[in-house]
Design a protein around this nucleic acid. Structure first.
Lengths: 171, 171
DNA sequence: CTCTCGATTGCGAAATCCGCAGGGTTTGTG
DNA sequence: CACAAACCCTGCGGATTTCGCAATCGAGAG
């Protein structure tokens, strides 16, 4: 049991990627584990272990670590329309002054589902999820534009969501 | 299995009134179950049952049904930057002719993580995930602009992802 | 070589998952 | 009203999985 099984895994922990921001580096095995859990977040550890060539306990430890480190999270994702949120929009925002402080303010708003700092003709892009038109109007015109530093906004109301995947790292 | 938004709904014979896009009506209990799984996708059925006032078996059956119906899926989600995709961008697209056919073409591209038809100064917004700058350039200038009907594109390269939640229905 | 540290393994015990049978409740029909 | 069918829930074993822990392995550092 000790003699074989080693030939396969050559975990290559050194610079697969290390360049920036506190990202803990992931080896090929952790990537494979994530891939398994992207297919089914409830897949048993033993099944994952069989797929990636690790024992059940080792998989469990690595998964726990990935969760603790915030590298991934295992959650239920839904189609907003089926849970009562009928209006969504992407909002492009231009900022004067500190972009990050504006981003933090938007992050604190529960309707803001997704906040990203960008390069281009917008400084920030924010996805917002609302229950109806009134709610959407209120969030955009009253709440977002009230944030200090927000110079202008442009809204793109969702008409139809065509694709939404969670297969990052799976290609 | 890749798309949430357009997940097929099982022909539900007795659909009294699920007007349009909406799927099956979710009662308060199913919503509470989803909420539990949005906090932790691996939470045991018994614990969920205790939280929502149902037996373990009942929770299990409801969860299975929600998964089968495509109302939700339980998956691992990651920050693409930490799993080796260093360049992301939101791309706004203007289309001449049929928007939906363009959307379908983009949906077929694996680099397109998110495709949505919008109202506003863009007809489509697409989030793309790439490994590096070359890859990003190739996708935008060669692949997306080559799609028939694409009139123009505007890119917003991601600098920093500030927020990414999956708490729909939790408010 | 020796020691340390992190990752992995093996293994029981406890908890969880799973399928199935049974019992209410509601709906539709004769 | 009676009856059947469809649904949803509960309870209960048995199989499976999770969990915690001690022992082992491997790569460095001293």
């Amino acid at each position: 049991m000790h003699s074989v099984a080693v030939a396969s895994r050559s975990a290559d922990p050194r610079d697969s990627r290390e360049s920036r921001n506190g990202g803990p580096q992931l080896d090929a095995v952790s990537l494979a584990i994530i891939e398994q859990l992207q297919e089914d977040g409830r897949r048993p550890y033993a099944a994952i272990g069989k797929a990636v060539g690790l024992s059940e306990a080792a998989v469990r430890q690595r998964v726990q670590k990935l969760l603790d480190q915030g590298v991934m999270q295992i959650v239920a994702v839904t189609d907003p329309l089926t849970v009562g949120f009928r209006r969504q929009a992407m909002v492009g925002i231009n900022v004067e002054g500190d972009v990050e402080s504006v981003a933090d303010a938007l992050t604190a708003m529960s309707e803001c589902e997704y906040v990203v700092m960008t390069a281009g003709s917008f400084d920030l892009m924010v996805e917002i999820v609302c229950e109806d038109d009134d709610h959407l109007l209120d969030v955009i015109n009253k709440r977002i534009r009230a944030v200090p530093g927000v110079r202008s906004t442009e809204s793109f109301v969702y008409l139809k969501l065509k694709k939404q995947t969670y297969m990052w790292g799976t290609r």
